[in-house]
Design a protein around this nucleic acid. Sequence first.
DNA 1: CGAAAGTCTTGACGACTGTCAAGATTTCTC
DNA 2: GAGAAATCTTGACAGTCGTCAAGACTTTCG
Lengths: 214, 214
Amino acid sequence: MPGPAARKPPAEKYDERRRALAESALITLGELGYAKASLREIANNSDFSHGVVHYYFQDKHELIVFCVREQKSGCVRRYDDVIAGSATPEELVAGFADKLVETLATDTAMHRLWYDVRTQSMFEERLREVAEEIDGWLEDMVWRIVSRYAELAGGVPAMPASVLYAIVDGLFQQALIGVSAGRHEVLGELRTLVHGLLPTMITTDVTPGVPTPA
Amino acid sequence: MPGPAARKPPAEKYDERRRALAESALITLGELGYAKASLREIANNSDFSHGVVHYYFQDKHELIVFCVREQKSGCVRRYDDVIAGSATPEELVAGFADKLVETLATDTAMHRLWYDVRTQSMFEERLREVAEEIDGWLEDMVWRIVSRYAELAGGVPAMPASVLYAIVDGLFQQALIGVSAGRHEVLGELRTLVHGLLPTMITTDVTPGVPTPA
DNA sequence: CGAAAGTCTTGACGACTGTCAAGATTTCTC
DNA sequence: GAGAAATCTTGACAGTCGTCAAGACTTTCG
């Protein structure tokens, strides 16, 4: 009985191939989006045939969820270097802004796909789990950035993590829409914006910030 | 030659029916989203048959664009009453927060659809025009709110319109995701958040805000 | 009333979708 | 190298989709 179950030879070979298929799929997914990326189109832009998907994945849904989770998992990790490598608040904010702008310009299609999946999760229950998981990763990432920034600047975050993330996400998404529409000047604007915004996200004296709800 | 061209009898009858069809379509569109709402499903949830769509609209795309533009056009207008009816900054911010929360709870499906269309506009060029148009409406709306708030409070907006909109939109979208997932407590949190956030969006003294990019 | 214009329903079309089974091909093991 | 296991290809399946044409029904108007 062939299939994904009962792996005998080094199961890593299987996982490796699985990952390779997912990486190929990401190209088409990022280009066409969740709804319009068919398995045949995904296979055409890769070295696989359209039938092999069901050898490595149960169905299209499992493939896409795997792809997005894998891609976003690596994306979130990239910011840890910024935190670890910054000794001053100025360094940290510059590193953060640069990374944001860099990934926005480089991985445009991947970010499009993420927002697509998150939006579809409002219509499809099956996507809700992975969307909430990744949203959590991103919120934690923003929180780590702002927390460390506050620490270096001798203050504390002025807003709860969910609010910080919502603001950064709103700005990033608007910039992504701009880049997707060909307005590449938004890249520089986003960098300037982050430089100006981060100081307002912490409290260094008695100035009150946005109170936490509930 | 029957068809949308060459209207003789009161053309308003035609427009009226067109609008009625669009309003019915919004039900299904809001429930299933842009991609999964088929013309047959749209017709099933209405008094029309699936073929009549091409009598009033050239194709599915034109129907959806018409639906979303019509819906959002009315949605944006609702905030003007808040501006006109508020005599103090506190009244304005309370009215704004209440309207946001109210429409979030009442028109959940419509907001889902809007974010869906805007996200799809990053993949489909044909959607870009209407998405940018509506984004402009919303940005103007937020700008009018904050401007009037600043005026009443004796200050000026601390950030450019695009940034104000991106922040409000980020918070609203995060709340929408929460409501769609059944976490209705985010409604109250959003209200509290807006109350705390609006004062930070204007400058009443020499405190500098976020500088405008470019 | 009756003809013409407007409105709508029905059914069909080709294209596309995810899925899967049958078998070809490759890789591994003894 | 033979046989077995793993991997992959191919082709077909049942469904769904947007579109449209043919004609039925309704309204308008002389």
